[in-house]
Nucleic acid binder design. Structure first.
Length: 631
RNA sequence: GGCGGUGUAGCUCAGUGGUAGAGCACGCGGCUCAUAACCGCGGGGUCAAGGGUUCGAUACCCUUCGCCGCCA
């Protein structure tokens, strides 16, 4: 039996909601998965969530939530996000699954028995916040070396266990020197340099907490989360549970990850663990780059984090395309605009440019003009592709595409597929079926459209991994039944159509995006127009009383002059008495959509300063008549 | 500090020992099947700077400067 092609993504830390970075990795895996399936091979694509870190429990407790149900909820968030992006995985592992803990304990025990784990003392520094240990030489003035942390460290000396990573330098080097063990090649060099610099044994236990996997044979300790996390790739493949599955999967064919966890973990600790266990090593580790936003690192503090699902919403909003195609557009943009492996930049401007140029003008418009002409000139009947000079060029591009895909050069594979569309557009211009129609030359029209449609058909097949829904739609509109395989992408290889199908003009799949200004408004800055939409007015509070059954809420009536009186509810009772408020002039948001608060209608909002432990009402510096505009 | 990479048209990037290319953007023209689309043409670059090798370098070597990454 042929080995099942096994693809993994890292498991994602549940403390964070799915962001564009994790989406990027998972999309890459989905793209490869679809490509391999297109080659007719069986694929197993696994992803999941990393839930055993102590911080996860802390985060849950901070929200007053039980860690288990917190993880449950977050794991669902991830699944929802992936399906919202059109990703279809074959397995989803959560490291809090019971079976995973069994696998981890079993393997740790095995490593101990084989002598790769030994007991020892850990002397050094520990950062409570980062949950990270540091060696003496890494630390200055007792502060955390992580530039974003820099908190005081604890000096620790504790008993625990080490994994003999240092024993694997030689075998690791021979693995890492293989030509395609690590990609991109520049990262392979980084990894090699790292290992050549010498490996230290790694401390693989932590003090036991009420969250995490206990260390076998020592109740006071638990397994370091990275050891636990890496083992997920074995668990999800059926290790110790489904031997048949496991033998048909192992080792992974491609393991995807961000560059940050390639060198130390996936290209070093992970293969060393496998070597120690006597298990085959992964065929390929791929460390892709990061996405920045307008050249800046994404971070919560900068407020520029892109959430993949909201990016899909934006695409829908600005183009009006269907949701399934918006999902396609996002993944297409991500892999079209940045060579896979390198760092990339995300911006809605670039997304729009890419969407319009490639998807609307090129692909979508070509499909549209071809279906229209087939409908009008040929009564909806798709002509077969004639043999001509295009077949050879199409074959060359197909070969380039395959080579690119096999090397995970998604960027250039997309380029090859798009070249076919260019050829089709040029061909139409040269042969001008609309002129042939006026001349009544139906045979020539059949040849012309037959050629262009075949180019589009092949291109749509090649684009299936990148545009799963749109490709499928295009092929269906042309009368084929997707999904088609790579072998169908040969010139004239697949002319079979759904019986008696009539091609008709349909609504554009990718309507153009026109609204540049609105898009920029989605980013950090808002335009003057956006600000002007807020109707700020001077208002005079004319009544104020506590909302029944609450301690903090006041219900007030505000006089807005020409706009009349408005009711509003505000949580300012701890800071002002009704007497202080009645008669006061305030700044009021007059065109806020009405909301119901505690069953009471609130028809606007009073502006107030959110000061530490205080709330301060904003008032005009001098008296102004109620209803005056504020700008 | 060590190692690796990179600096080419407004933007994103290809590229080769023989005096530069693509896509996007921009301008003009054509066409009308099409989503102001598509097709054609065009402007625009001392290929970071300096030196060397060579008949000849953007490409090879050295130095400097800028940026990035990995490690320490």
């Amino acid at each position: 039996m042929e080995k099942i092609f096994y693809i993994t993504t890292p498991i994602y830390y549940v403390n964070d909601v799915p962001h564009i970075g994790s989406a990027y990795t998972t999309l890459a895996a989905d793209i490869l998965s679809r490509y391999v399936k297109m080659k007719g091979r069986e694929v197993f694509f696994a992803t999941g969530t990393d839930e055993n870190a102590p911080k996860v429990a802390e985060a849950a407790k901070a929200r007053g939530e039980d860690p288990a149900s917190f993880c449950e909820r977050m794991a669902e968030e991830f699944k929802k996000a992936w399906s919202g992006l059109g990703i279809s995985f074959d397995a989803f592992i959560r490291t809090t699954e019971k079976h995973h803990a069994e696998v981890v304990k079993y393997l740790v025990q095995e490593l101990k028995e084989k002598g790769w784990i030994y007991e020892g003392y850990y002397n050094g520094w520990y950062c409570i916040y980062d949950e990270t240990y540091f060696r003496e030489e890494e630390v200055e003035r007792g502060l955390c070396p992580n530039p974003e942390c820099q908190r005081p460290l604890q000096q620790v000396s504790e008993r625990g266990y080490y994994f003999k990573l240092s024993a694997f330098e030689e075998p690791l080097l021979s693995f890492l020197r293989e030509s395609n063990s690590v990609l991109p090649d520049f990262r392979q060099r980084e990894v090699l340099n790292f290992v050549l610099g010498g490996l230290r044994d790694i401390y693989i236990t932590r003090k036991k907490k009420d969250w995490g996997i206990p260390f076998p044979g020592d109740e006071k300790l638990q397994v370091y989360v990275w050891v636990d996390a890496l083992i997920n790739y074995l668990t999800v493949a059926g290790f110790l549970q489904d031997e048949e599955l496991f033998t048909s999967l192992w080792p992974p064919d491609v393991q995807f990850m961000g560059k940050d966890i390639l060198v130390r973990f996936h290209a070093t600790l992970w293969p060393a663990m496998l070597l120690a266990l006597g298990l085959p090593l992964p065929n390929l580790l791929f460390g892709h780059g990061f996405l920045t936003v307008k050249g800046e690192k994404m971070s919560k503090s900068k407020g520029n984090v892109i959430h993949p699902l909201s990016a899909v919403e934006e695409i829908i909003r600005f183009s009006g395309c269907e949701r399934a195609f918006a999902k396609d557009a996002l993944r297409f943009y991500l892999f079209r605009s940045t060579p896979f492996g390198a760092d990339g930049d995300f911006s809605y401007e670039a997304l729009r440019a890419c969407y319009n140029a490639d998807l609307a003008n090129n692909l979508g418009n070509l499909e549209n003009r071809l279906t229209t002409m087939t409908d009008r000139y040929l009564n909806g009947e798709v002509p077969p592709p004639p043999e001509n000079g295009y077949s050879q060029r199409a074959e060359e591009l197909l070969a380039n595409y395959q080579q690119a895909m096999d090397n995970l050069a998604f960027h250039s594979a997309i380029g090859d597929a798009l070249s076919l569309l260019d050829m089709a557009n040029k061909h139409l211009d040269k042969t001008a079926p609309w002129r042939l129609f006026k001349e009544g030359n139906i045979q020539a029209i059949r040849r012309s459209l037959g050629t262009a449609i075949e180019l589009l058909r092949i291109s749509a097949i090649l684009l299936q991994p990148f545009l799963p829904s749109a490709s499928s739609e295009i092929l269906s509109r042309l009368g084929f039944s997707p999904p088609l395989l790579l072998k169908d992408a040969k010139w004239g290889a697949f002319t079979r159509q759904v019986e008696g199908v009539k091609i008709k003009k349909m609504a554009p799949i990718f309507p153009r995006m026109e609204e540049v200004i609105k898009i920029s408004a989605q980013e950090k800055e808002i335009s003057m127009d956006d600000f002007a939409r807020v109707d700020l007015r001077v208002g005079k509070i004319i009544s104020c009383k506590v909302v029944e059954g609450t301690e903090k809420l006041y219900q007030m009536e505000v006089d807005l002059g020409e706009l009349g009186k408005r009711r509003t509810v505000a949580a300012i009772a701890p800071y002002y008495t009704p007497g202080e408020l009645i008669g006061k002039s305030v700044i009021f948001v007059a065109n806020l959509a009405p909301a119901k608060i505690r069953g009471l209608i609130s028809e606007g909002m009073i502006l107030a300063v959110d000061a530490p432990n205080n709330v301060i009402i904003v008032t005009p510096e001098k008296e102004a008549p109620p209803g005056s505009k504020v700008r």
